[in-house]
Design a protein around this nucleic acid. Structure first.
Lengths: 342, 342
DNA sequence: TTGTATGCGTTATCAA
DNA sequence: TTGATAACGCATACAA
């Protein structure tokens, strides 16, 4: 029971395969109306679909794009994946999702695999790693794609020259800190992400910038680094509390961290925002569902990912800069209050 | 700057393309050690990777599997996707993720696209729809794959004959209801999923089964159907409360529903589990992070999805039944307490 | 307006 | 142990 090929269609319609090919793809190539009808009927009767592999071989590119993700079960990446798959679908291409599990070696392997598949482009959704050998290899991939008129697009800083669709991570860190300061807070902690990830670093540096700008001095005890995770936020808050450091506000580098922080505070009987205000960067659906609902700098992940696909698919000339920076407006919910001296 | 092909390798190594092909794939075909060395060196020097499209065309199958998902941004599907991509990677194949957005028409289109890609198999992660035309088309796809020795595997009931890796949804519904009854509860509500989805239906019927088994009579006011979502759970609980129906326990058809229920209860100042016990089916990471931590029937999604990939990749004879049912043990956390009459 | 023939990069068959 | 060649399904240059 072999697949039906273009030849089968041609035979049934009583025309050449060339003609079949033309009515199918070459939408405006002149073909007699009557012939076209016959072909279309044959296509339908046989339930014919062109073989992508043959097209790929001939055209030298496939109907796929690649998405590289650190952990697809994390809604952060999930939202990106949803946008990518949906937008890809609009362009008639399929999405190959690669999950690196935070292992750079996997990521590099995936790059080779995607290359073999001749994907139209790759979206890098995780923040880049600050590691030389990794960066070097990635740089090679980018070049390879560039040479073929394809693109690797970054959704977070990679420390490399490439098209991107991002937020300004430093500005976001600065913005949430500014906001707490505007509300009167002076002793503000920052619970950060991994020290090896560019975006985490930038968010933290925005925090320092804001402090500095407002003439507040930086207290190293108030800045911690860890993972972009619930557990990490939970631990950080516990430590802050244990050390008995005074503070009235906490900036969290992402939502998961904030969720963990909230839980730690709750367990210690500390009221949010009554005693401590909490703010974070990101705006996952859960942010509106925790209690209290979280005030955040909104990161329009979905729209960003949509755009990233556009950069790949519309991407006329590889030299043309298609990069964008999205804004991160503060969404006010209920986890921040004005500072009340005890 | 064309891609490097097997011919380039052959030229550099000074051998024929046949030989190159042999050292690469045909691991145990006899090739002189010296020749092998030369070839391997050329492969490395040129950074050669076989063209998957050409292999696909020749072999008549690709190095990919398909995953069909309702909403990849939902951690439920995210966990499945992580397992699938990771396990696929182990087999050296890539995963094509398709997001239907709960639209059956999309799903059917994706089936055609995946067919064109000659995927090795497809995993259906969402519960099947109780709609005749949809089922009919899906049945056709299954047959088409069967004829080619490939497989479409279901991770939830589809109402069709096909290999599956599932839990017993009815038993899970029964189990959580049993558990509440064991704790002394008599008036138990069930907040269900969509009425068109098989798994939702089965879970609800397990609830009735349990009631019946224990000689409790079924009160239609206590059973609701909606979506598998936070909002749906939230609304359902609000309604239950508004109608002033008495109950001391709530069974939720999935985690998201339970999270919404918990929030509605909290807003009404109802203590969980002091006044009302809540239990659900599913065990997303968040279940341990809400307050109170949720008692659930654990659904081993990750392992199930791993297994689904195995069914596709190891799937010797298509006629051989590779299906499995996973157990759903109750994970006791803090959302259920013994019934205390007021 | 239609058709013939070539080649894309592989693998497998057959011959040497 | 190695190599020449056909075939996979399609898109296109060229011919008619």
């Amino acid at each position: 029971m072999p697949r039906v090929s273009i030849e089968d269609v041609a035979n049934l319609a009583g025309v050449s395969i060339t003609t079949v090919s033309r009515v199918i793809n070459n939408k405006d190539y002149p073909v007699a109306e009557k012939t076209k009808k016959k072909v279309l009927k044959a296509v339908k009767d046989l339930n014919y679909f062109p073989d992508f592999a043959a097209q790929n071989l001939r055209n030298n590119f496939s109907n796929t794009i690649g998405l590289i993700t650190r952990d697809i079960s994390d809604p952060y990446f999930g939202i990106i994946a949803r946008a990518v798959t949906e937008r890809a679908s609009y362009y008639g291409v399929l999405s190959i999702v690669c999950n690196t599990g935070r292992n750079p070696v996997n990521e590099l392997q995936y790059h080779d695999l995607l290359w073999q598949h001749k994907v139209r482009g790759i979206i890098l959704s995780g923040g880049g790693l600050d590691a030389d050998d990794y960066r070097y290899k990635l740089q090679e991939q980018i070049k390879r794609y560039n040479d073929h008129g394809n693109r690797i697009v970054a959704l977070a800083p990679q420390g490399l020259e490439m098209p991107y669709v991002m937020i300004d991570n430093r500005a976001a860190g600065e913005m949430i800190t500014d906001y707490l300061i505007d509300q009167g807070h002076r002793r503000i902690a920052f619970v950060g992400g991994p020290e090896k990830i560019y975006s985490a670093l930038e968010r933290a540096s925005g925090y320092k910038l804001s402090l500095n700008k407002h003439g507040l001095n930086f207290d190293a005890a108030l800045l911690t680094h860890g993972q972009f995770s619930w557990e990490s936020g939970y631990e950080a808050a516990k430590n802050l509390l244990r050390e008995n450091i005074s503070f009235s506000g906490i900036c969290c580098a992402n939502n998961d961290i904030a969720f963990g922080v909230l839980q730690a505070l709750k367990e210690k009987g500390i009221d949010v925002p009554g005693q401590v205000s909490v703010i974070s960067i990101g705006d996952l659906p859960m942010a509106a569902h925790v209690s209290p609902p979280l005030t955040t700098a909104h990161v329009p992940l979905y729209d960003m990912a949509l755009r990233a696909v556009d950069v790949i698919m519309d991407g006329a000339k590889p030299d043309q800069n298609a990069s964008v920076i999205f804004k991160t407006p503060i969404v006010k919910r209920q986890s921040v209050a004005k500072y009340m001296p005890k």
